[in-house]
Nucleic acid binder design. Structure first.
Lengths: 210, 210, 210, 210
DNA sequence: AATGAATGAGAATTCATTCAT
DNA sequence: AATGAATGAATTCTCATTCAT
């Protein structure tokens, strides 16, 4: 429904199996939402039973939609990655090209502190197979942000996408597990942003370190 | 104290519970080593059975030495933290005060890429209970490194211990889960180090970014 | 869906948790019956596995219905106490008010010789928690019998409920563990009944001692 | 090997295997005492380890003296039965022949309230095999008390040993598990004693019922 | 004889997954 | 399609018993 373009489904599997019945689709959504909530709170070792209860469906229904727990976890990942990609794309069209990357990183770290999911899943599940293409999309979005920042002169030219993602991942993990408070998070990010800026741009707004 | 092998007991706690019999101590070491290896590979949810098998002892022996799985995990943590603290202290007496902190961070991140343990444990177990003081010791060691770096002028004065540890944690987590290769790791750290340096010291040896 | 039979559920708790599905109810009954049998024979330390096997279900099913072993034991207790209370109430409306108490005691002791359960459970479990009110109901039933016997003049006026229950408990325990035969049981009870009667009623039918 | 007297050891096994070394005998006693204490407090399911700790010896030593846990339990039983027999015999030579049986029963019930052992063991272990002869000795002692009471006219002539023991067992079990207080115990016993007395002796001192 | 470390068969409990209703 | 009961392998932990020191 929400797919803006029918798209000859070769690109990235738009859930692509079959047009589900209305109630089935509704259940699918509820299960996904419940799973995200439950796993966010209790970590990926929470039981599928609990997810079912939280979604208000029977356990069988969960397994009907997601034949294994792995599949459910991956679905959450995809979902999340898609949302992040969307957010990246939105930021890319913003009017502050020099700050978009910094903003994105900041937002992700903020969310990580609340959601075990993204990070926790990456940890447990690895980035195996199925989600690879979703990840790729996100990478491309981030790359666009990086390029624009470099063109705007707020990020050094010699920095590659890989490092940015490495930093992003690490910072999210750290924020997640160590439970950084707002202030610590801000100061930590400021250091990293400082490291990303070229000499002449040091002390820029996003990197203000007090 | 660069002695390579001053005592075979550098590994675990000299918190004198009781002088174990020779064979008991040997088994204790083997179990700890096995546990570290197994948990490093499979994460902390690996079964105690597997640890026992890897150590070549019966399951009962593992539980005799470490009465709960938690206890085993904590023992590994303590062990590891003790080793890190030792390393910090060694670095602190080195002749390159300006680089000691950078060196330490680099080494930790290198190890994290191999050992799921440190980081994985911190994630699952939290820093509860018994390990709290071990953690404190490590913090103090790192603080000393930080102070010396600041006195040597290689780290900005306005940076606090908390940010350094936050960065350290995040970087370790990232290196661990994402499996950074050598080169990526070096470049990522370089960015962070660059962010830590004062203006006038930028482009220093440890932060060389190619 | 209107149940054609009055109610096949006289056995367990009508404390409306939820109307179980037909097969679930059937299994619940089978498990309860199996548990009663197994614990009766081997005492409450018999394994839950054995109960499952005896009931012809998988171990998981037992734990689905009774989430801990304690819960299973308590369910048996409640069940049994309910049955006894019912029996007490029935006897109370009998036409031989003077003998009802004696009859009840005799029956309980007879059953005890077959069922380790009642008594064994009271021993191991204590009368903790949930069963307390079931016990209370039984006490009240027995008190009614006692009062009626006293009014009928077959039990001394100065005897209290506590002693009756103490005797009942002791006799059941004795019958249970020592495996009294029919005759020994009769003679032993006769002595106790004799002790309960007032002077003028000695040698009554129930107390005939040969 | 060096057994000084082969001794026709048929009567009742006076611990009869071999003359133990002095320290060994001492350990044996300590273990027995510890076992009695531990099992009295925690019931017969207490671990052998705990017994060893309480006795201040190593676990191996316990198994050296008592090759199985069963054997240890039986040894306690024998010990206890021997002590009871001794007590019976002492009472039998007392100057109050009419009350000796009542006194003995009263004492046993009192002790039962404190010691899980006697009764608990009888329950778990059954009276299998090994202790049979010890039991027989006690039976004979009690029979003597019964006979003397009957000759003194305080117990009915038509009462047999079996009923007395049945009552004794039941009362002990009851006292043990139900935790009777002093007063309840007295009133309960009074009822039973009343049932044992002949018509003409009712209301005797031991049976005073208030 | 004593020690106490090691053994390994259970025991209770959980949970992903299947399948009859 | 949905339900939810049943399954049974896996996991943590205990404890009687054995055996090298």
């Amino acid at each position: 429904m929400t797919s803006p373009k029918p798209s000859p489904e070769a690109t990235s599997d738009p859930t692509g199996t079959k047009p589900l019945r209305a109630d089935a689709r509704r259940n699918r959504e509820r299960i996904l939402a419940a799973a995200e909530a439950v796993f966010a709170e209790k970590g990926p070792s929470a039981s599928t039973d609990e997810v079912a209860a939280h979604a208000g469906v029977a356990i069988g229904t969960v397994f009907k939609h997601f034949p294994t727990k792995q599949a459910l976890l991956q679905a959450i990942m995809k979902d999340l990655l898609a949302r992040l990609t969307q957010e990246v794309d939105t930021l890319a069209t913003d009017d502050a090209p020099g700050e978009a990357l910094f903003t994105f990183i900041t937002r992700m770290v903020e969310q990580a502190a609340q959601k075990r999911t993204v990070v926790g899943l990456l940890a447990e599940t690895g980035i195996d197979l199925q989600v690879a293409d979703s990840v790729q999309l996100l990478r491309e979005g981030i790359e666009a942000l990086l390029t624009r920042s470099q063109q705007a002169g707020t990020v050094r030219e010699d920095i590659h996408l890989d490092e940015v993602i490495a930093l992003l991942t690490g910072l999210c993990q750290g924020a997640l597990h160590a439970g950084w408070d707002r202030d610590l998070q801000r100061r930590t990010l400021a250091i990293v942003f400082e490291g990303l800026r070229p000499f002449e741009a040091r002390g820029g707004a996003a990197g203000t370190y007090s």
